[in-house]
C-alpha cells in the first residue's frame, strides 16, 4: 500500500544510507512501541493482567469508546471535529429503551441507531450546507440533543423489562468474547477498510488535506464531509444502544465526556488533529493505550485520580510530537 499514515521515508528512492530514526518515525510508531512496552510492564507487574478474562474484559469495556473513536477518526481526518457524540450516545440509548418498551426490542435497537444516524446527518448538513465551523455546530448540537434526551426521560432512568432487549448481554458469546466485543471488531474492520481501501476513504484524506484541491479535482467535498459526520453519528448511536442493551436501561446523562475521550484516543494514536492524515489502526492503538492505563491503575491499586493526570499528559505528549513533526516540514 502507499503510505496511509505518513511513513514515507522508506519510499523515497534509496541514495546511500538507511533513513535515520527521525521525529516522523517517532510519531509514526512511537505510540505502538509505547503500547507494547506498557503491555509488557503490566504483565510483569500484575499477575491478574495477562489473563484471558482480564484481556477480554478490557475489549468488552472498550466497545463503546472504540466504536465512537472510529467515527471520530473519519471526521478528524476529513478536517472536522464532532463534539456531539456523547449526547448522541445518551439519546440513542434512551430512545432505544423507550421504543423497545412501546413496540418491541428489535425496533428499539434500530431506533437507537437511527437516531444517531439522523443527528449525524444534521451535523453534516450544518457543517456543509450551513457552512458552520464543525466545532461550533456539533457543540450546539450536543446541547440540543442532550436537552432532548432530558426532556424524553424527564430526568429519570428508563428501564426495559423485556429480556430480549439484552441483545448485547454481558455474558460471553464464545470463550469469553461478548457480542459487544464482536461488534467492536466488526466496526473497526469496516472503518479500516473504508478509510484505507475505498475511493471514499481517499476522498476523506484529500478533503481533510486540501479541500479546495479536492473540489477542483471533481470531488463532492460537501458529500464527503457530511458523510463523515453521518457515520460518526451512526457509530455513537450504535455505541449508545450497546450500552443500554447491556444493562437494559438508559439515562439522559450517560456517556458524559465520551466525546473528549474519543478525540483523545484518536490523537494519542497519532492521527493529526489538523486533518488529512491518520489511520484507524492508530485509533485502535490509542483506545487500547488508554484502556491499559486505566486497567493498570485498577490492577495495581493506584488512586484512579491520577489516571486523569496521566491521560492528560499523554495527550500533551502526542500532540507536541505531532506539532514538532509538522513544523519541520514547512
Amino acid at each position: 500500500m502507499t503510505a496511509h499514515d505518513g511513513s514515507y521515508a522508506a519510499e523515497a528512492p534509496p541514495r546511500g544510507f538507511a533513513p535515520r530514526v527521525s521525529l516522523d518515525a517517532l510519531r509514526d510508531y512511537g505510540v505502538l512501541i509505547s503500547l507494547v512496552a506498557l503491555f509488557v510492564a503490566l504483565s510483569i507487574a500484575s499477575s491478574a493482567f495477562l489473563t484471558q478474562t482480564n484481556l477480554l474484559n478490557i475489549l468488552d469495556q472498550q466497545a463503546d469508546l472504540g466504536i465512537i473513536a472510529c467515527g471520530a477518526t473519519l471526521v478528524i481526518v476529513a478536517g472536522g471535529l464532532d463534539l456531539s457524540v456523547a449526547a448522541i450516545f445518551a439519546l440513542a440509548g434512551v430512545m432505544a429503551c423507550k421504543v423497545a418498551n412501546e413496540t418491541g426490542p428489535l425496533l428499539g435497537i434500530l431506533a437507537g441507531c437511527g437516531v444517531g444516524l439522523g443527528v449525524g446527518v444534521l451535523n453534516g448538513l450544518l457543517v456543509t450546507v450551513g457552512r458552520m465551523n464543525s466545532f461550533i455546530a456539533t457543540l450546539a448540537m450536543s446541547i440540543i440533543v442532550g436537552g432532548v434526551a432530558l426532556a424524553v426521560t424527564g430526568g429519570s432512568q428508563v428501564i426495559v423489562e423485556d429480556d430480549s432487549f439484552r441483545f448485547f448481554p454481558q455474558d460471553a458469546l464464545v470463550s469469553g468474547l461478548t457480542r459487544a466485543s464482536v461488534a467492536l471488531v466488526i466496526v473497526v474492520t469496516v472503518a479500516w477498510f473504508v478509510l484505507a481501501r475505498t475511493t471514499f476513504g481517499r476522498y476523506v484524506y484529500a478533503v481533510g488535506g486540501n479541500a479546495e484541491a479536492a473540489r477542483l479535482s471533481g470531488i463532492r467535498v460537501n458529500v464527503v464531509r457530511g458523510a463523515t459526520f453521518a457515520l460518526s453519528g451512526l457509530g455513537a448511536g450504535l455505541a449508545g444502544v450497546i450500552v443500554a442493551s447491556r444493562v437494559s436501561s438508559a439515562t439522559a446523562d450517560a456517556g458524559a465526556g465520551l466525546e473528549l475521550t474519543a478525540i483523545a484516543a484518536v490523537v494519542i494514536g497519532g492521527t493529526s488533529i489538523a486533518g488529512g492524515e491518520g489511520a484507524i489502526w492508530r485509533t485502535v492503538v490509542g483506545v487500547l493505550f488508554l484502556a491499559l492505563v486505566g486497567n493498570g491503575f485498577n490492577l495495581l491499586g493506584v488512586d484512579p485520580l491520577y489516571e486523569r493526570v496521566v491521560t492528560g499528559a499523554l495527550i500533551v505528549l502526542a500532540v507536541s510530537i505531532d506539532a514538532w513533526a509538522r513544523r519541520r516540514r514547512s
Partner: peptide, 13 residues
C-alpha cells in the same frame, strides 16, 4: 499549493 495538490499525500494519491 492552494488549488492543486494535497501536500501531505503522495504523488500517487
Amino acid at each position: 499549493k492552494h488549488d492543486g495538490l494535497v501536500m501531505l499525500r503522495s504523488g500517487v494519491e
